[in-house]
């Protein structure tokens, strides 16, 4: 339907027609410079989904960087004698005994605050790592094609075929000391495939665009074409996939820690806490529920964030 497309195009170009007959081409005088990024930001700012998730993510981020702001208690102070599975004291907001104590007699509230760090670190760093790896591999495969594409795509397929959690478990069991970095490494090692596939797909589409042909016709170098033309246009779908995947990595970390293969004490992690409290559901359900809810809220905020970003960057997918 040619007219509707033309319509959206003409409404995109802002400002009234023929207001300023400055030159021979007295057309719509575009208002302020408006990049596609600023358009996306304009959409994002008005999306309640984005605002809610952003507030939550900010809170979680601050929690992970400055846990001391939220509680004076230490998550590792255990007092079995006094606090073993002590019930929450709902009136004591933000006090160590507010949400009660766990089986080791540690403040659940403090562990809730300190547990954010592991989740956010794993989520963010794995996402950055897989985005970079996936982008590089996907762009090389998509741009050069031929045997490079064949080789890289087959490698991607091999990694893609490995079940994510099982694969991470196998890698983690080979390490004796399982710090946050080890978990990050193992998740990054397996997680880049979806990004690589998305990047490859969008690079293949974009490299055929006339503006890339135009740059080639000008004699632009491969590096220039890749960085100035292909990357900025291929990155939007990659960002969408990456932000949505971020929640998944946080969930994966919790899963692995719950299974006892991810993070281990003394690292504070919600997954470990859920695992430690799994027998207490009938006695003191809050011990189990609170860290579980934290995992859910965190994963959900990143998923919502990813969704909002997708809507802003790719309105057609709505």
């Amino acid at each position: 339907m040619p007219d509707t497309t033309a319509l959206t195009k003409s409404t995109d170009a802002s400002a009234a027609a023929a207001q300023t007959p400055t030159t021979t081409d007295s057309g719509p005088a575009p208002g302020k410079p408006r990049s596609l990024w600023s358009d996306a930001w304009h959409d994002l700012r008005r999306n309640p989904l984005f605002l809610v998730s952003m507030v939550l993510i900010l809170l979680l981020t601050v929690m992970s960087i400055f846990p001391g702001l939220f509680t004076s208690a230490s998550p590792r102070d255990a007092n079995l004698a006094e606090h073993y599975l002590q019930k929450p004291n709902w009136g004591h907001f933000f006090a160590p005994d507010w949400l009660g104590y766990d089986v080791q007699g540690r403040s659940i509230y403090a562990r809730l605050i300190y547990g954010a760090r592991a989740s956010i670190m794993v989520g963010v760093i794995v996402t950055i790592a897989v985005t970079i790896t996936g982008l590089v591999i996907g762009m090389l495969a998509g741009y050069f094609g031929g045997w490079i594409d064949t080789v890289l795509s087959r490698i991607t397929d091999v990694f893609f075929g490995v079940p994510f959690i099982v694969g991470a478990m196998v890698i983690l069991t080979t390490f004796e000391e399982r710090s946050v970095w080890v978990v990050i490494l193992s998740l990054s090692f397996l997680g880049w495939t979806s990004i690589a596939r998305v990047a490859r797909g969008s690079v293949i589409t974009i490299k055929q665009a006339d503006y890339v042909v135009a740059a080639k016709a000008l004699g632009a170098s491969t590096t220039r074409i890749m960085t100035r033309h292909i990357l900025p246009n291929a990155i939007a779908p990659v960002i969408v996939v990456a932000t949505i995947a971020l929640g998944g990595y946080i969930a994966a970390e919790a899963t692995l820690s719950f299974l006892g293969i991810g993070l281990a004490e003394p690292t504070v992690s919600w997954g470990i806490d859920v695992s430690a409290a799994k027998d207490q559901l009938r006695n003191v359900p809050t011990v189990l529920i609170i860290p579980s809810v934290m995992v859910s809220i965190t994963v959900l905020s990143f998923l919502m964030f990813g969704d909002a970003v997708r809507n802003a960057l790719d309105p057609k997918m709505r």
Partner: peptide, 11 residues
């Protein structure tokens, strides 16, 4: 001369 009007701001 000029271009067709923007339909959000028809003169």
């Amino acid at each position: 001369k000029g271009l067709p009007p923007n339909l959000t701001r028809i003169p």
